[in-house]
């Protein structure tokens, strides 16, 4: 508001009515410019993705002779090979199992931990919360060497659990941080009414709080699902045999193994990004809302 007061007087006298009406009917030139700039940025973001998908329908010969042309003729064999390969489906399954395991683990343990932190009064509550918050400062990379040794000692190397458990642990800080204010915001009257009716605090958690917290849990879950689906470092170190590979590992391996078969890599890459794209389209609101909430929280 003060910025307004400091503002120099409008340079052109007739602006006020023009500006007011321009909100109803925007100036053509500026609107066109607006669309041009936004569409140009969208083109830059989306053209590489479209290029990879369409080029998967070409042969290596076509790609070599004209790197950017449309497929002519459209070849289905690259995609056919990927979709009929056991490796690919095994990797989809592995990625799914790990992502589902991580998501479930984070939601269950995170919600449980957030409940007392949000709604009990006890000595040391803020200190305990702070411990979780500090965890935000430790990305998985900082601890990866000892974590690797620890997983080795626990015989978890090479197993899906070896990826799931650390991912859950490292996702707890952000989960607790998102869930606690949400659980806190549930009105106290609800809790008091439940206690008057003879419900215990545990009963309140299961019967009233959990159903109300579903939106926040979905947000947290979607974020962790995507993070797990895309993770590379942990799976790279933990999963040693190709049978247990996740999709990112599979894509990286495929692209170095068949580095001369560009068309096949393109097809493999496209198919590998479809699950994430489909999931994102379905869950767009949750992901976007969760990210902006997480960042603001």
């Amino acid at each position: 508001m003060t910025a307004l007061a400091d503002r120099p007087a409008p340079a052109t006298p007739p602006t006020p009515p023009a500006a007011a009406s321009s909100r109803r009917a925007p100036l053509r030139a500026s609107t066109i410019l607006q669309y041009v700039i936004v569409l140009a940025v969208i083109a830059v973001t989306i053209v590489p993705v479209l290029y990879v998908i369409t080029s998967g329908f070409r042969t290596n010969g076509q790609i070599a002779s004209a790197p950017t042309a449309l497929p002519d003729p459209w070849v289905l064999s690259n995609y056919g090979r990927v979709l009929s390969s056991g490796d690919f489906w095994q990797q989809v399954l592995n990625s799914t199992l790990i992502a589902v395991g991580t998501t479930a683990g984070v939601i269950i343990t995170g919600t449980m931990a957030a409940y007392p932190l949000a709604r009990y009064r006890f000595r040391g509550r803020e200190a305990l919360y702070l411990v979780f918050v500090l965890g935000l400062l430790f990305p998985i990379g900082v601890a990866i060497l000892p974590l690797y040794l620890q997983l080795r000692d626990l015989h978890l190397l090479g197993t899906h659990w070896g990826v799931i458990i650390p991912q859950v642990a490292f996702a707890l800080p952000i989960t607790v941080i998102i869930l606690r204010p949400f659980l806190k915001a549930i009105p106290r009257e609800l809790e008091e009414a439940a206690f008057v009716d003879g419900t215990t605090r545990v009963g309140f958690f299961f019967r009233i709080l959990l159903p109300l917290a579903v939106p926040a849990m979905v947000t947290v879950g979607v974020l962790q699902f995507v993070a797990s689906w895309n993770a590379y470092l942990m799976p790279l170190l933990v999963l040693t045999s190709p049978d247990s590979y996740t999709l990112p590992l599979g894509v990286a391996r495929f692209s170095s193994q068949y580095s001369s078969d560009t068309a096949a890599i393109l097809a493999f890459t496209s198919v590998a990004m479809l699950p994430a794209l489909a999931f994102f389209t379905l869950m767009e609101k949750r992901i976007v809302g969760g990210l902006s909430g997480a960042v603001k929280g």
């Binding site: 269950i108 343990t109 995170g110 449980m112 931990a113 409940y115 007392p116 932190l117 305990l128 411990v131 979780f132 965890g135 430790f138 900082v142 601890a143 990866i144 060497l145 000892p146 974590l147 040794l149 620890q150 458990i165 650390p166 859950v168 642990a169 490292f170 707890l172 800080p173 607790v176 958690f205």
Partner: peptide, 20 residues
């Protein structure tokens, strides 16, 4: 309520960081 998360957090986050 807190134990599962806290144990996971200690064993797989804090201890490895300290070991590093």
């Amino acid at each position: 309520f807190v134990a599962p998360a806290l144990l996971l957090f200690i064993i797989f986050v804090l201890v490895p960081v300290a070991r590093a």
